[in-house]
Design a protein around this nucleic acid. Structure first.
Lengths: 191, 191
DNA sequence: TGGTCATGTCAACAGTTGCTGACAAGATGA
DNA sequence: TCATCTTGTCAGCAACTGTTGACATGACCA
C-alpha cells in the first residue's frame, strides 16, 4: 500500500504566513532569540522550515515582524489612568492564559540580552510602549517616568514569569497586590 | 627561520583555570549563555578551547562555577541598611567600571531567559541574594520583600545596562536618583 | 641526567544552525 | 485539457557548536 497522502495541506499563502508568525511568537515568548530555531518554528506551524526563509526573508526579519505585529503597550495595560496600578498588579499576579496578553512582554524579556535582537527590542519598546504611554501621562519628564514604570514592570515580569518567583501564600496575595500597585503609582507620579 | 616559540606559556594549572573563569565571567556579563562559546572564552583567556572542557567538565559546569564564585548580593549593595536606597540608586546610575560590581548581576540578566542556565541562576539568586538579604531585613515576609526589591533592581538594571536606557539629562539626574531610592524604600518597607 | 606526570596543543567528531536551490504538486485561467 | 504561476517539499551546504582523544612538551623529582 502506498503511504497515504500526508493530509494534503491546503495551499494558502496568507494562512501559512500567519501560522508561522503565530508559532514564532509562541516560541519567542518562551525562549531566547538564539535558542529558537527556524525548524522549531516551522514544525510548530506544521510547515517546512524552508518556508520561514521564503516568507520572511530571514529569522531576524521574522523576529522583527513578531515585534511589529504584537500588542501595543497600551492595549495590555489599558488606556484609562484610573485604576491602572491595580490593573497592572493583577496582570502580574494572575495567570491570564486567556489570550496571553503578556506574550509580547515575554518576547522582549527573553531576548533583551541578545545582541542580534536587542536593538530591535529597544526600538520596539520605545515606539510601542514608552512614547504612547508618555503621551497619555503628560506633564514633566513624562517619557522618563514611563521608562521608570517600564523598568519596574519588566523586573516584576521577569521575577514572576521567567524566574518563576512569587509563588506566594494566599494570605499575602492582597498585600503584595497593593504593594505592586503602590510601586507603579510611585513610578508614574510627577518627578 | 623557524617560527618563534609562541611566548612559551608558563604551565600553571591554577592560573590557567582562574584565567578561564575570569574570561568566562566577562563574556557571560556581556552576552547570553547560548551566545558565548567556549572558543570565545578560551581565546579571551589566551588558552586552547579544549582546556575549558578539561578544567571545568562542560560549559554548563563552567557557568555554574561563574555563578558560585561571583560576588554575594550583600557585597554589592552593602550590609548597612542605613542609606541603602541611595547606594542602590547610585549603583544603578553611575558607571562604576571600577571592579565591575554589577557584572554578576549582568550575568544573571543576560542568561535569565535561557532554559539551560535559568534554573542555575534562579537557585543562585535565591541563595546568594534573597536569603541573606531577608535575614538582614528581618520582620514579616522578609523574603517576599527581598524578592520584590530584587525585581525592582533587576528591572532597573535591565533598562540601564542591557537596554541602554536612562540616557538622562543632567538636570533630571538628582530627581531620578531620589525616585529610584524611594522605589527601593517602598519595596523593602514592611508589608 | 633520566623518567614521569601534569599541562597545553591540535585535529576531528557528531550535531546543530540559518539558509538556498532544485524539484514536486496543487491551483488557476485560457 | 493544457500551460502557467503559486505553494510546498526535500536534500544539502557551509559555518558553527561543545566535546574528546591522541599527541607534544614543559616542569619537577629521584
Amino acid at each position: 500500500m502506498p503511504p497515504v497522502s500526508p493530509a494534503t495541506r491546503v495551499r494558502n499563502a496568507a494562512a501559512t504566513r500567519s501560522a508561522i508568525l503565530q508559532a514564532a511568537r509562541e516560541r519567542f515568548a518562551r525562549d531566547s532569540y538564539e535558542n529558537v530555531g527556524v525548524r522549531d518554528i516551522a514544525s510548530g506551524a506544521g510547515v517546512d522550515a524552508a518556508l520561514v526563509s521564503r516568507y520572511f526573508g530571514s529569522k531576524e526579519e521574522l523576529f522583527a515582524e513578531v515585534l511589529k505585529s504584537g500588542k501595543r503597550g497600551l492595549d495590555v495595560i489599558g488606556e484609562d489612568m484610573d485604576g491602572l496600578p491595580e490593573r497592572v498588579a493583577d496582570l502580574l499576579l494572575d495567570q491570564p492564559a486567556e489570550d496571553k496578553p503578556l506574550d509580547d512582554l515575554l518576547v522582549a524579556l527573553h531576548s533583551a540580552g541578545s545582541p542580534q535582537a536587542g536593538h530591535m527590542i529597544r526600538a520596539s519598546i520605545s515606539e510601542r510602549f514608552h512614547v504612547p504611554l508618555a503621551q497619555l501621562l503628560g506633564g514633566e519628564n513624562a517619557e522618563l517616568r514611563a521608562r521608570v514604570f517600564g523598568a519596574v514592570l519588566m523586573g516584576m515580569a521577569i521575577s514572576q514569569k521567567v524566574a518563576g518567583e512569587f509563588e506566594i501564600a494566599p494570605e499575602v496575595r492582597e498585600p503584595l497586590r497593593a504593594r505592586i500597585a503602590d510601586l507603579v503609582r510611585l513610578a508614574l507620579s510627577p518627578l
